[in-house]
Design a protein around this nucleic acid. Structure first.
Lengths: 236, 236
DNA sequence: TCAAAAGTGTTTTTTATACACCCATGT
DNA sequence: ACATGGGTGTATAAAAAACACTTTTGA
């Protein structure tokens, strides 16, 4: 059958906002753009969608190219379609956020991108509308994590409660009462306590936990409430 | 500057899932597709994005073409990019959901589309992946409305509490205790009681209310909880 | 022995839920 | 006068928040 006539076709890109957690702070992974325009400026990792791949496929490809990781938590955020967002040629961009265990990407697998982790507050200016995209991704992750246990994706398989609490405190820039936090965590029954301790953070050491993966998957959409007064902290 | 070379360009469409409420049930507005392929099959209202317009612009244009309405509540849902989703030619579709006061679109402004309102459970089979899009839109509206006061967009400026409760009960397919519902509503301080009554639904008549627009806008992102046990009713 | 971080319970407050009767009016 | 849907209050249960001290152990 004939193609649709009299319609304009556009470039389609995916851009990934890659989050990691270093134990203290949430960070994002940025690259130096490798081609004109804006060559060597800081940018999100992205790429054009190829004829045979889906959007999710393109996002995964781009992420794997950068980090070497597969099976990463990746979620579509939204499409950006301003006609002038790319000065060279109209390009629609579909953004994804990725949550990775930062320790799996410490050895810079592909130096070709000159990737670097940045604290959110220290992130450099980005090309095009990438700054706006990062802001939207931050809002999305805060919103989603207030209700669903996605932040575990940022931690190693074994993690401690203090680590987890640091993560929540940093994401929401707030102090959480340790006893209430543990009570809420326990109520989810999502965690399994291990015998082993992490002694790196203190003399006493903190017990490791791991996720109960079955319950994690089964309860993923259940509403949680790790964050006190979430509506005061989250803007949509 | 030169265009990006060696990249494939694609068609981009927007598709709108238009919701309305007839006082009893949530409905969606569908049209008969006017061109090949799948001509005369039921479809979402959509259209190709034009060179000079943004995605939001395209969605608004498409919606205005169909309904004659402007300033409608419209929110991007997600991008669908399966390479084979349109059999003729690869087309990326960005979906939007629209919430309109159904009474503003009773006179079929544009008969050219053969638009009809359908109960969600009676909706016909749709072309391409539009059925999947409708399912995703239903989930989105349920999810969002459990936390934010968007359903008011489906009602006229003046509405009654029983109307509003019917709406919530239909959206969540549940029974809500009337006294608890009113208590939660009152707590939001979003409603202003009018002197006038709607006598169409009963002999006693039900007081009209209107939204306090300032508080509505200010509190739009605050988490509400009109729905008992939302996590049991909402699937993400 | 002491500094530093981990871990543990109880009380109070707030929020959600369950529940049943009277009211106003048109017919 | 009665049938129909609208409107109201209270008691109980559950969840969230506030709050401070003891434990462990390496240096």
């Amino acid at each position: 059958m004939k193609k649709y006539t009299d319609q304009t076709r556009f470039l389609i890109a995916v851009d990934c906002i890659v989050f990691g957690f270093d134990g203290e702070h949430l960070k994002i992974l940025l690259i130096k753009r490798g081609f004109e325009p804006e060559k060597d400026k800081w940018s999100l990792m992205g790429g054009f969608v190829r004829p045979e791949e889906s959007l999710d496929g393109a996002a995964n490809r781009v992420l794997t190219q950068l980090t070497g990781l597969e099976g990463v938590y990746l979620e579509q955020i939204q499409a950006y379609g301003d006609p002038l967002r790319d000065p060279i040629e109209r390009t629609l961009s579909v953004t994804y956020f990725a949550l990775i265990d930062i320790h799996k990407y410490e050895t810079q697998i592909s130096d070709q991108y000159h990737a670097e982790w940045f604290l959110l507050k220290d992130a450099p200016e980005l090309i095009f509308d990438h700054g706006e995209m990062v802001e939207a991704a931050k809002k999305k992750i805060r919103y989603k994590a207030a209700l669903h246990p996605i932040l575990f994706e940022l931690l190693p398989k074994k993690f401690t409660i203090p680590q987890l609490q640091n993560l929540y405190e940093d994401v929401y820039n707030t102090q959480i009462d340790n006893r209430n936090f543990i009570r809420k965590l326990t109520a989810t029954k999502l965690l399994i306590k291990l015998a082993e301790k992490d002694k790196s953070g203190s003399k006493k050491g903190a017990f490791y936990f791991k996720l109960d993966k079955k319950k994690y998957k089964a309860n993923f959409q259940a509403f949680l409430n790790f964050i006190p007064n979430p509506d005061k902290l989250i803007s949509v």
